[in-house]
């Protein structure tokens, strides 16, 4: 495992910690999209179906359990916690799940890694993760004031994707035994995971722009439509 991958995972983990911290300490989930959180829970369930059948490392297994557990905890807080659920911006979080789930699933059926249930759902989870942030970004656009924790949460989530891209480039060049192998692999750049990762990172570009601008000007974060 290289440093980019580790930094990416830690950033991802930190984003979840920040979100749970916001929910638990402020007893509020204002500005957080339940749609996005439910989609992430679905992403983790469909991706980690091989949790018990395919062992990679202790680190991987623990992290998978953490991601599964925390994503369901967040959804539980937003849906059922009697104080937290009242702070949910239900009227502004109107993005439809199926609008993202359906195309991801159709695409996974068309271009699966291999044709069996686990592989199709794995491919589906890769596509879905790429676009699952959309309801959250739409909600941010609609919110007048974005509190620091919410801003930091989305920033860390985007940071995780950028670090994963660096990780893939690093692996592409460093992990090949054959010197010319990377040229063939580079043609393969249009494959599932890479394209999804690129799309996902691009989605954050706009957010990053306003985040850094507000940080430079020491202003409160505000996205203008």
């Amino acid at each position: 495992m290289n440093l980019f991958r580790l930094a990416g995972d830690m950033t991802h983990l930190l984003s979840i910690v920040v979100l749970l911290l916001k929910i638990r300490t402020t007893k509020s989930c204002a500005g957080i999209s339940l749609k996005t959180q439910e989609l992430y829970a679905l992403v983790f369930v469909t991706r980690y179906l091989d949790l018990f059948s395919r062992y990679v490392s202790f680190y991987n297994s623990v992290m998978k359990l953490v991601f599964l557990g925390t994503s369901f905890a967040i959804v539980w807080y937003m849906r059922y916690h009697k104080v937290v659920k009242q702070t949910y911006n239900k009227d502004e979080d109107t993005f439809k799940h199926y609008f993202l789930v359906l195309p991801s699933f159709v695409l996974a059926l068309l271009i699966p890694h291999a044709f069996n249930t686990v592989e199709i759902l794995w491919t589906f989870s890769i596509y879905l993760e790429a676009v699952a942030i959309l309801p959250q970004l739409v909600l941010l656009q609609r919110s007048r004031n974005i509190d620091n924790l919410t801003g930091n949460y989305v920033f860390l989530l985007g940071g995780y994707r950028v670090l994963y891209l660096f990780n893939w480039v690093y692996r592409l060049f460093m992990e090949e035994n054959h010197k010319m192998r990377w040229i063939r692999d580079f043609v393969e750049i249009l494959n599932t995971a890479w394209m999804s990762g690129l799309v996902q990172t691009a989605l954050y570009a706009d957010f990053f722009y306003y985040y850094i601008k507000s940080w430079k000007n020491r202003e409160k974060l505000k996205l203008t439509a």
Binding site: N167, W168, A193, W194
Partner: peptide, 10 residues
């Protein structure tokens, strides 16, 4: 292949 690469990630 690249797909196999990302299979050991999260």
């Amino acid at each position: 292949c690249l797909q196999e690469h990302v299979k050991d990630e999260l």
